[in-house]
Structures are given as C-alpha cells and as structure tokens.
C-alpha cells in the first residue's frame, strides 16, 4: 500500500510499532521470594529466589525501585550487584514474621522466620537503569 505522501508515513508507523513491541518485550514479569531464619540471634538459610513468570500476572505496578544498570540484562546479576538496596526495598514492602520462643528450665531458645511470599514483579530493564515494581 502506498500512502498519499509516499512511503514515509508507513515506515514511521512500522518503526513506532517495532519500538513499542521492543519496549513491551523488555518489560517482563518476575516471581521473587525471600526468606531467612534467625535462630538464637544468629542468621541461617538466607535465600532469595528469582525466576521468570510462566504466566502473566494480574495487578498494577506499585512502589517502584530504580536500580542502576551496568549493561546487563540478567536480573539475578543486577540484583546481586545492588543487593543491600534491593533487600532494604523488600523489607519496606513487607515481610511475614513467624517467631517462636521456648524457655525450658530458664534456658531460652528462639527462632524467627522472615518471609517475602512469592510475589510477581514487573521489571523494566533499560540501558541505564532497571525499574522494579510489585504487581498488586
């Protein structure tokens, strides 16, 4: 099909479609969970699990976190580079606390489990920065 002004308009449309689809492809969804156990004031079994979402998630992105991107498209690496910042952000989002304490004959033992239940995050990876936001 030729437009009235020639092929200029068509190429512009094609370019914009390609640009938008590339943006949409970059904005992927990840499932992230975090858990650690503190037993008698000593930390054990800290685990941060990240995986691509096999199904699309519902909800709107909220409470964005913007991390610097040093030309890497792997979220695992990006998070490990900014681990402290990301963990602080996860703490702010909200963690489930399960604490059990036992005192037998005046000897105390305690176990605290902090958990971020598997949550879907929308992740936009760009050249210079990464935007991470949970879908709620």
């Amino acid at each position: 099909m030729r437009s009235r002004d020639g092929n200029n308009n068509l190429t512009l449309r094609l370019c914009s479609i390609i640009f938008l689809t590339s943006l949409a492809l970059n904005a992927s969804e990840y499932l992230i969970s975090y858990r650690y156990v503190v037993k008698d004031a000593i930390i054990f079994n800290e685990s941060l699990d990240i995986s691509h979402a096999m199904k699309s998630c519902n909800g709107k992105p909220q409470d964005k976190l913007i991390l610097e991107n040093t030309s890497d498209s792997n979220l695992n690496k990006l998070i490990s580079q900014n681990q402290e910042e990301f963990l602080e952000y996860i703490h702010k989002l909200g963690l489930h606390i399960e604490h059990k304490e036992q005192t037998i004959n005046l000897q105390n033992t305690s176990t605290t489990i902090l958990t971020l239940k598997t949550t879907c995050f929308k992740v936009d990876i760009n050249d210079n920065f990464v935007i991470i936001a949970p879908l709620k």
Binding site: H96, I97, E98, H99, K100, E101, Q102, T103, I104
Partner: peptide
C-alpha cells in the same frame, strides 16, 4: 518448667 511464646 516450660514457657512457649509465638508471634505471627
């Protein structure tokens, strides 16, 4: 003597 406490 046993005392158990829990928080969720």
């Amino acid at each position: 003597s046993t005392i158990r406490t829990s928080v969720k």
